[in-house]
Structure formats: structure tokens, C-alpha cells
């Protein structure tokens, strides 16, 4: 499948969403990303049992941090989809880009 998704989404591959750390998400924001999201497996279907649930909690943590800093928590998000859902992957990318466009550039870059 060669599904189009917005070119301004930069993909970083990790073995499991459980590998994504709070610091990874924060560094992305710190370095100027307008938004960052984690695409993990469907809940209950993690190969490593709970990697995606851990990622979910870390995303929530970072959302809370952004809130405390008066930044929009919506800039960070967790999505769950299976590896076979190519169209959904592309749709999520478009959704997230739309959302970030709505929020405007990150105030961190101001």
C-alpha cells in the first residue's frame, strides 16, 4: 500500500511503543516539534504484554506537564492501531496534522 500521509510527519521507529520514554516526548517538544504522537498497538495486543499501556501513561504524563506549562496538551497524543491498518495510520497522521494546524506553531518556537 502506498498510502499518502502528510510529509511533515517525521516517523521514528521503535521496537515497541513501550520503548518511548517521557524524555523522548519532551525532547521533541523542546527541539521545536509542534506536536508529537505515539502510534502503538491495540490495547491488549502488545507483543510485550503492556508496552502500549506504559506508553499511554507516559503520554498522559507529558500532557500534564504541558498543561502545567500553559501549553496545549493536545500537542501530544497516543493512538492505538494494528500493524495491518495502513489506511488508519494515514488517517491518524492527517488528523494529527489537522489538529496541530488548528493549534498553530508551538509557542516553544516563538
Amino acid at each position: 500500500m502506498r498510502l499518502p500521509y502528510p510529509s511533515n510527519v517525521k516517523i521514528i521507529q521503535v521496537p515497541c511503543s513501550g520503548r518511548v520514554d517521557i524524555l523522548h516526548l519532551l525532547r521533541a517538544i523542546e527541539d521545536g516539534a509542534d506536536g508529537v504522537y505515539v502510534a502503538g498497538c491495540l490495547e491488549g495486543e502488545c507483543h510485550y504484554i503492556s508496552g502500549n499501556l506504559k506508553a499511554k501513561k507516559r503520554v498522559q504524563y507529558v500532557k500534564k506537564v504541558l498543561e502545567e506549562l500553559d501549553l496545549e496538551p493536545e500537542r501530544v497524543e497516543m493512538f492505538n492501531l494494528s500493524a495491518g491498518e495502513g489506511p488508519r495510520f494515514a488517517q491518524i497522521a492527517r488528523e494529527m496534522v489537522e489538529r496541530i494546524k488548528g493549534l498553530g506553531p508551538s509557542p516553544v518556537n516563538a
Partner: peptide, 19 residues
């Protein structure tokens, strides 16, 4: 060290946000 890294990053984000 991990939490130090997180807080440092948060402080930098806050700083940048405030110019």
C-alpha cells in the same frame, strides 16, 4: 539522573516558551 533529565528538559521548554 532520569528525573533530572526530564526536569531539565521541562525547564528548557518553559524557557523557550517565554523567550
Amino acid at each position: 539522573s532520569k528525573e533530572v533529565g526530564i526536569l531539565a528538559s521541562i525547564l528548557k521548554i518553559a524557557g523557550k516558551k517565554n523567550g
